[in-house]
């Protein structure tokens, strides 16, 4: 059994730290783990995708259409963009924040409406949460990624809260540990 998770968002939102955290927690649990990232050109405010897979034995580092158990999204439109990678009935955990892409900024397109309904109609289960506001309450908008990981952690029964917290400790710089711990706890507690 392999669990497949896509982490998607806008370049610069901190998806690399989120995947590091998840990969770390799964490896400490004794799973085989693969994480695939995209660097370079795609990071400059573009749509970014990271794949995290864990299980007894993981071969391919990437996730194809219809393979993801979960999508964690840092931005609403990006969650919708990758919905076809989800298994039917798969779970989306998304930040409800909206960031206009360049075609919307340039006025050649509109930010789509009713995205949550559209994702549900496409066959996904959706848990949308205002992670940005929670992160600001925790102390910094930069902790949005950790808030979302806190929300997501509830869905992964294989990894206990204590194990997640150990992974957070190992993944963030010491001087930001308190902030990130608070952000994780607030994400975990969010309804």
């Amino acid at each position: 059994m392999v669990t497949s998770i896509m982490i998607v968002g806008v370049g610069g939102q901190g998806s690399l730290l989120a995947s590091k955290l998840l990969g770390r927690a799964a490896m400490d649990k004794g799973y085989d783990v693969k994480v695939s990232e995209v660097h370079g050109m795609s990071q400059r405010g573009g749509s970014v995708v990271t794949y995290v897979k864990f299980g007894d034995k993981v071969n391919s580092p990437i996730i194809d259409k219809g393979e993801a158990d979960y999508i964690i999204s840092f931005e609403l439109l990006e969650a919708a963009r990758y919905v076809q990678f989800l298994k039917p009935g798969g779970q989306i955990v998304t930040n409800s924040q909206q960031i206009d892409p360049m075609p919307v900024i340039a006025g050649t397109a509109e930010y789509p409406s009713e995205l949550i309904e559209k994702m549900e109609a496409a066959g996904a289960k959706v848990d949308a949460i205002d992670a940005l506001t929670i992160a600001e309450q925790a102390g910094s908008s930069k902790a949005t990624n950790i808030v979302l990981m806190g929300v997501f952690s509830k869905y992964i029964s294989e990894i206990s809260k204590e194990e997640w917290i150990k992974a957070v400790e190992a993944s963030v710089p010491a001087k930001f540990l308190d902030l990130n711990m608070k952000a994780f706890e607030m994400g975990l507690a969010a309804e």
Partner: peptide, 8 residues
Amino acid sequence: EKPACKPI
């Protein structure tokens, strides 16, 4: 092909 959620 694997069954999947429908693209939007």
